[in-house]
């Protein structure tokens, strides 16, 4: 079969056999898992990063800090596939909870990216010169006010590009959710391929869709970075 015939076959399945419904569903799930995962990840990451940077004179911050160390260690130390399988087939059944696979995928992506994002934020905050904190504290601002008004606005500039990177990683990583039976882009194109006994064009199309999404996000991040650069003329 020549390439043209393969493309015709692909288009036939895609349109005549309603393959596009699967693709749209897969795209929707892929984006849903990546975006909601990122949102959950930012919330968890912010909480952990906060625990990481607050001064540790007292007992409570120290205890919280060790909890966070364990959390980050677990989620960075095991592959995401393993985490998906552990949650879907071990943790949730043991707790007697029954959730659709897409929801489990969102939760696991959120928990996992939370661990990475916390490190991104911690290093972003710590890369702001300590003199900025001292300047704020010296005029009588509290630690939290100094953070909110002075350090974090500067840290965001360091954090944002890396955070965009994390989002791109999440988008690409969604291709593993079929392990627990969630229908993402891979499942959709695999379906088309199986129906035509012809995988070359479907997988090529899948790769192109991923590249287009990632390019769009890259452009978006560039745009946001530029609008944050106002005060950034460094010496």
């Amino acid at each position: 079969m020549n390439f043209e015939a393969k493309i015709n076959k692909f288009i036939e399945i895609l349109i005549d056999y309603k393959g596009y419904v699967k693709v749209i569903e897969g795209l929707e799930n892929t984006l849903k898992i990546a975006i909601l995962g990122l949102v959950i990840g930012i919330v968890i990451g912010t909480l952990i990063a906060t625990v990481r940077v607050i001064p540790k004179y007292k007992r409570l911050p120290r205890v919280l800090n060790s909890v966070c160390t364990f959390y980050v260690g677990f989620f960075r130390g095991t592959p995401m596939v393993v985490q998906l399988l552990l949650f879907y087939y071990v943790a949730l059944p043991l707790m007697g909870i029954n959730l659709p696979s897409v929801s489990v995928a969102i939760a696991v992506f959120g928990l996992n990216s939370g661990a990475y994002i916390s490190e991104i934020m911690r290093s972003g905050i710590q890369s702001v010169d300590y003199g900025q904190t001292e300047g704020g504290r010296s005029v009588g601002l509290s630690f939290s006010t100094t953070m909110m008004k002075i350090v974090i606005p500067q840290a965001v500039k360091n954090i944002l590009p890396t955070l965009g990177n994390e989002f791109i990683v999440l988008i690409k990583e969604t291709s593993i959710v079929s392990f627990i039976g969630a229908a993402d882009l891979y499942v959709a194109f695999n379906y088309i391929g199986s129906n035509s006994y012809e995988f070359m064009v479907p997988y090529l199309a899948m790769a192109i869709i991923y590249i287009v999404i990632v390019c769009l996000i890259t452009v978006l991040i560039k745009f946001m970075e530029r609008s944050l650069k106002k005060s950034d003329r460094r010496n």
């Binding site: 003199g131 001292e134 504290r137 010296s138 009588g140």
Partner: peptide
């Protein structure tokens, strides 16, 4: 350490070797 130092720091100015002006302001 029990004293709220922030209240008193309002009354004690400090000037640093490396200025420490807020770069984002």
């Amino acid at each position: 350490p029990k004293v709220d130092i922030n209240i008193h720091r309002r009354r004690i100015g400090m000037v640093f070797q490396h200025f420490n002006l807020f770069n984002n302001k």
